[in-house]
Nucleic acid binder design. Structure first.
Lengths: 344, 344
DNA sequence: TTGAAAGCGATACCAG
DNA sequence: CTGGTATCGCTTTCAA
C-alpha cells in the first residue's frame, strides 16, 4: 500500500481516542462501549479505512495466502485445478498466488523462493518436467512450511498428496485401443523422471501385458519438456513414422502433447483414425469438437484442486504438528470418441 | 511466514553484532567492513536466512506485487495475457497475484477489495461482463493506486489502457464473410455494456453498411455472461435458427462463445460451413484442429499483457504523479480457415 | 471502558 | 566502522 491509505492512527487522532481503543473497536471487542464502536465504525466507513494487511500479517505471523506452482496455466488441466483450489481457499479467507514454471527446474526453484519471500502460509505444487530433486522444497518443509503436492508428486517428501489414478488412466486408454483392434500402439509421454509419466507408462505396459502383447521400447517416446515445445513432439512422431513397423495407434499423455500430436498428424495429412488412431490425456472442453473428436482420458481437475487445498488448509490450521500423511487418488474417466473408432 | 524462519536478530545475537550492523552488512553497505560482511553473509547463507518481505514492505511502503483481475484463466486469451504480464513483471522484480471474476460484478468488487487488502503496488484489470460502474476502482485510483486497464476497459477512469483493435477485428471478420458470399450474417456477442462488445459490434455494422447490407437487430444476440454458461449461447443460437430467414453465417466474439457455438452447432447436426458458416474470436492454439478448422480473429494477447505491465510499472515507478494517459491499440489478425469456405 | 507500551522484522538516521 | 533507536501499522497484554 504505497498509496495514501488512512491508518488506525489517523482515526484515533481524528476521534480523540487512543490507537488501541480504535483497534479494539474495529475488531468489535467486548471491552469497548457500543457508542465508541459505533463512532469508530462510522468514521472508518466514511473514510474507507482498510487495515494494512502487511502490518496485520507481520503482527500475527501469518499471511492468509497460499502459493500455487504449476507448469502453465494455459493448460486447461491446471487452470481447472486452480479453480478448484480457489473455490476452497477463498471460502476459508485465504488468498492465492500463482506462479508458472514453464517446465523449467530453474524457474521452479526461483519461483518457490520468490513465493516464500512473499510470506506464504502454505504451498501447493505440481513439479516441473525437469525437476529431479526437491532439495529446494525439502528445506522449506523442514522449516515448517506446509506443502501439499498434486498431480506431479515427489516421493522424497513426506506430506499430503493428491493425484489422479494415473495407472488406471494409462491402462484404460491402452486397453481400449487394444480392444478396438489396434495392433501396434505407441506411447508419447513426458520425461521419465516425473511421477505421472511412470504411472501412466505402467498402465500402458500392464494393458499390453494382459493382452499378451510385447512391450516394445521403440514405440515409447519421451518429450523432455512434456510437449512444451512443438519440436519435441514432432521428433517423437517422426521417429515413430520412420519405423519399419510403424504404429497404427498412439496414446499420448498430457494436454499439450495430445493436442500437438493431433495438430501434427493433421498437418502431415495423416488420417485419424484410419491411418493412425489417437487417444490422449486432455482436459480441454474442446475434445468433442476437435477434428476428429478425441478419445481422451479426463482427470477430475477441479476436485483435485479442492482436495489439495483442503489438505493444505488442514495442515496450516492444525494446532499440533502433523505426522500422518495421506495420498488421495482420484479416478479418471475415459471418453471414447471418433479418434479411435474400431478397426474394420 | 508462520514457519520458523531465522531473522536478522538471530544472526545479530549469534554473531555478537547489532541488528543494524547485520542489516547493513546484508545490504552490502559501504559502512561495514569486508570482514564483518563476509561473516554475516556466511552465517546467513548457512542458515538460509531470508528477509521477511512483510517487514520489508511495511517499512518501505511498497510490496513489489501487482494484482491481475480477469474473468477466467481457463480462457486462453487471458492466460496468454497473464504470461505476457508475468514476463515483464518478473524481470522488474515484481510478483503477481491473479484473481478471477467469473464474469460476476460482485466477485469483481470482492476480489479487488481482497487484493488491495493484500497490499498491492498496482492493479491490472479487465472488467467482468456484468460490470457497469467502476466506483470500486475509482475510489482506489483516487487514493493513489495505479491502475491499468486491458481488453475490457472503462471510459470513466482516466488511466493507461491497452486494447486490441476491436473495431477492425469485427470489421475484418464480417467483411470476410460478406466476400465469401454469405448473405445473412448473425452476430453473437457479450453483453452490450462492456467495451469490446460495442467496438466489435461497430466493426460488424460498418462492414455491413459498406457492403450496402441492412443491419438487422434480429441477427444480433447478446450473452449476458459472455458465454460463461452454455445455456445463454444455446438460447441465442436457437433464436437465430427459429428466424424465418435464418442466418447462413455467424460471427461470434470471445473464446467462450465461439467454441460453445461450434460445439452446439456440431451437436445439432448443423454442417459448418455448408449449413451455417462460423467465424469467431479465439486465441486457442487449437483453432487449426477444430472440426472444422475455424476462421478466427486472433488477438496479440501476450503483447497486450506485456504492454499493460510496462505501463503499470511506469506508473508505479514514476516519481511524480502522472497526468497524461494513453490508450494503446494492438492490431488483430484474421485467420481464414474452412469454417467459412466460400459459397458456391 | 480506555489507554500506554511492547513487539512483529527490517531499515535508516544519527551518535559514538 | 558499529550500535542505539525510532519507525512502518497493527495487535495485544497490562494498567489505570
Amino acid at each position: 500500500m504505497n498509496f495514501n491509505a488512512i491508518t488506525i492512527r489517523d482515526i484515533a487522532k481524528a476521534l480523540g481516542l487512543s490507537v488501541s481503543t480504535v483497534s479494539k473497536a474495529l475488531r468489535d471487542s467486548y471491552e469497548i462501549s457500543t457508542q465508541t464502536k459505533k463512532l469508530v465504525a462510522e468514521y472508518a466507513r466514511e473514510h474507507n479505512y482498510r487495515p494494512n494487511p502487511l502490518a496485520q500479517s507481520l503482527k500475527k505471523g501469518h499471511s492468509k495466502t497460499i502459493g500455487i506452482v504449476v507448469s502453465t496455466i494455459e493448460n486447461q488441466f491446471f487452470s481447472q485445478v486452480i479453480n478448484g483450489i480457489e473455490s476452497v481457499a477463498y471460502k476459508a479467507g485465504f488468498n492465492v498466488i500463482i506462479t508458472q514454471t514453464h517446465e523449467s527446474y530453474e524457474l521452479e526453484v526461483k519461483n518457490v523462493a520468490q513465493l516464500t519471500h512473499h510470506a506464504l502460509d502454505g504451498l501447493l505444487i505440481s513439479l516441473s518436467a525437469e525437476t529431479k530433486d526437491v532439495e529446494h522444497l525439502q528445506h522449506l518443509n523442514k522449516q515448517g512450511l506446509p506443502i501439499v503436492f498434486f498431480d506431479r508428486v515427489s516421493s522424497d517428501i513426506k506430506t499430503h498428496k493428491v493425484i489422479a489414478d494415473n495407472l488406471k488412466g494409462g491402462y484404460d486408454a491402452t486397453k481400449h485401443l487394444i480392444e478396438a483392434g489396434y495392433k501396434r500402439i505407441a506411447h508419447i509421454t513426458s520425461p521419465p523422471n516425473i511421477s505421472i509419466t511412470q504411472e501412466r507408462l505402467a498402465g500402458y505396459k500392464q494393458a499390453l501385458k494382459e493382452a499378451g502383447r510385447p512391450i516394445e521400447e521403440q514405440y515409447i517416446k519421451y518429450c523432455p519438456h512434456g510437449g512444451r515445445d512443438t519440436e519435441e513432439v514432432e521428433i517423437a512422431i517422426n521417429e515413430l513414422l520412420a519405423l519399419p513397423n510403424k504404429p497404427d495407434a498412439i496414446f499420448t499423455t498430457s494436454d499439450r502433447i495430445t493436442t500437438t500430436t493431433l495438430f501434427l498428424l493433421n498437418k502431415a495429412g495423416i488420417k485419424i483414425p484410419n491411418d493412425i488412431a489417437l487417444a490422449g490425456y486432455t482436459n480441454t472442453t474442446l475434445a468433442d469438437v476437435l477434428n476428429p473428436p478425441l478419445t481422451s482420458v479426463y482427470q477430475p481437475a477441479f476436485e483435485m484442486g479442492q482436495k489439495a487445498a483442503d489438505m493444505l488448509l488442514q495442515l496450516i490450521l492444525s494446532k499440533r504438528p502433523v505426522t500422518e500423511f495421506e495420498t488421495i487418488t482420484l479416478p479418471t474417466q475415459l471418453f471414447i470418441r471418433q479418434s479411435t473408432h474400431s478397426v474394420g
